[in-house]
């Protein structure tokens, strides 16, 4: 988590919000930065769950 937050440029608090699912929305720039650092596609880190 600490390494990812440093590499992506997010604070630990914001990354924690993302991890716990409390985030209401994610910016394209954030998504792009995460995908770039993890070398993956958005679909690899996002999943649709019907309520």
């Amino acid at each position: 988590m600490t390494e990812l937050s440093e590499r992506v440029g997010l604070t630990m608090a914001n990354l924690s919000v993302l991890k716990t699912g409390k985030a209401k929305a994610i910016r394209f720039s954030t998504l792009e930065a995460i995908c770039k650092e993890l070398n993956c596609q958005p679909g690899d880190i996002l999943e649709f769950q019907p309520e």
Partner: peptide, 8 residues
């Protein structure tokens, strides 16, 4: 404001 704060 809450929406904005929870937009990462």
């Amino acid at each position: 404001s809450e929406q904005d704060q929870l937009t990462i």
